[in-house]
Amino acid sequence: MKMDFNFDDFFKSLDWSKVAVKDGAAEGMHDATDDLLSKSRDLAPLSDGGGTLRRTSGKNVEVSGDEVSGEVYFSATERDKNGEVYNYALITHELGDSFKNPSTPGTQPKYLERPMKENAERYKQMVADSIRRELS
């Protein structure tokens, strides 16, 4: 007795699943980066009252091949007395214990790192839940 299987439909469903997983992961990554951006903006200092640091923040989600990546960034730069450009966002983020007098109550150094660490598991769950929704 001979048995034949045609796997075309099976492989097509795998291709569909791969697309659905990437779509779900991208949607979940957008949700996670939106949340991290919001939380980190609330913690970022308002040094001059103008909110330059908060205004220069943003997020980016990319899908490339089989990878989905997300980033949240702050990109404020300023010039020192000598005209040299320095990364104000990095300096304020890394101030540590020298951050004694925040310009706005409730702001703090590590304004991006802290909410990321505090919510890392939640963000992973957001991506996983979004993939599950896409596959259902």
Rank of each mutant, 00 (worst) to 15 (best):
I91Y: 11
D66E: 14
A76Q: 13
N60T: 08
D66K: 08
E84W: 11
S75H: 06
K100R: 15
S98H: 14
N82R: 09
E94D: 11
S75K: 11
G83S: 05
T77M: 07
L95W: 06
G70W: 10
G70L: 08
L90Y: 12
V72I: 05
S103Q: 11
T92Y: 10
N82L: 14
S103K: 09
E94W: 00
G65R: 12
E78G: 03
K59G: 08
T56E: 11
T92F: 10
E94F: 02
G58Q: 11
Y88L: 13
K100F: 06
S57Y: 00
G96S: 07
Y86Q: 09
S103A: 15
V72D: 09
Y88F: 13
G65Q: 05
D66A: 09
K81I: 09
Y88H: 12
S69E: 10
R54Q: 14
T77C: 05
E62T: 15
D66S: 12
E78V: 03
L95T: 01
S57A: 11
S69Q: 13
E62Y: 07
V72Q: 10
S98T: 14
R54I: 14
L95Q: 07
P102F: 00
F99C: 09
D97K: 11
S103D: 08
G65D: 06
R79W: 01
E71Y: 10
S75V: 04
V61P: 03
T92W: 02
G70C: 03
G58M: 12
G58P: 07
S57F: 01
T56P: 03
K81V: 08
A89V: 04
D80L: 04
Y86D: 05
E84H: 15
D97Y: 09
V85F: 13
